[in-house]
Amino acid sequence: MALLETQKLTKTFIGLKAVTNMDLSVNKGQILGLIGPNGAGKTTLFNLISGALPPTSGKVLYKGRDITGFKPHILARMGIVRTFQLATVFQELSVLDNIQVALHYKSRVGFLQTLFETPAMAHKENGIVREKAMKLLNIAGLTNLADTRAGNLPGGYQKLMSVIIALAVDPELLLLDEPMSGLNAEEIQTLIRLVKTIRDERGTGIIMVEHNMKVVMDHCEYIVVINFGQKIAEGTPAQIASDQRVIEAYLGSE
C-alpha cells in the first residue's frame, strides 16, 4: 500500500483549472520529485495534499485512509508535514526556540498542564524537549547558532531551519516546496544529506517540488512532470530525461 495516494485530485479556481485529475502515489522511504514549469500547479497540489486548500473533487488517501479536506494541523499530527516555498521560520524566536515550538505538539503541553506543572517538572520537561531540539540542530550542524534570533540568520540557513522545523514534527510524509532555491552549492549538499539521513533512519516518504534539475535527477527515485495542472509524464530519472514530451514542455523551454 502506498503511503500517500491521490485519486483524480482536481482544484478549480474561478474559471481556471489549477490541478486536473491528478493521480500520484508515494511509498514509504521514497523520494518523489515533482517538476514542471512555473504556474504548472505544483504548489496548488501541495496545498491540496497538506490541507491548506480543499480540493474541488477527487480524493487524498494516506495509508489507505481518506484524508480529503482535513485541516493542516490534523494532518501534521497524522504525520504529513510540509515546508513553504519562502523560508518560513518563527522570526522573533531563537533558533533553539523555533525547534522547541515545533516540538510543542509532540510534547503535549496544554494550558492547564503549563499552569500546574511545578518548576521541577517544567525543568525536566524542558530538558527533554531541549535535548530533542539540540539533537536535530546537531544533525543539521546548527548547534552553534542555537541562541541566535532566527530572523537574523541568512536566507540559506533559514531555509535549512524550515526543514528542521518540519522534521521536528516527526513526519512520515514530508512535502518540500522548492527546498533548494536560494541555497548555495554547499548548503544544498547539507540539506540533501539531512533529508536523506532522516529518510534512511525513519523511512519517511518525501515529495519534493524542485527547479534544480541536477538535484532532482540525482536524488529522486521517481519523477512526475506536470504542466497546466496535468500530469504529462512520470518515471525514473533516466526515463524522464529521455522523454520527448518533457523535453519539449519543460526542459526545452529553459
Partner: peptide
C-alpha cells in the same frame, strides 16, 4: 501556517 504545520491547532 507554520504553526498549523507543526500540529498545533
Amino acid at each position: 501556517d507554520l504553526l498549523a504545520n507543526t500540529g498545533i491547532s
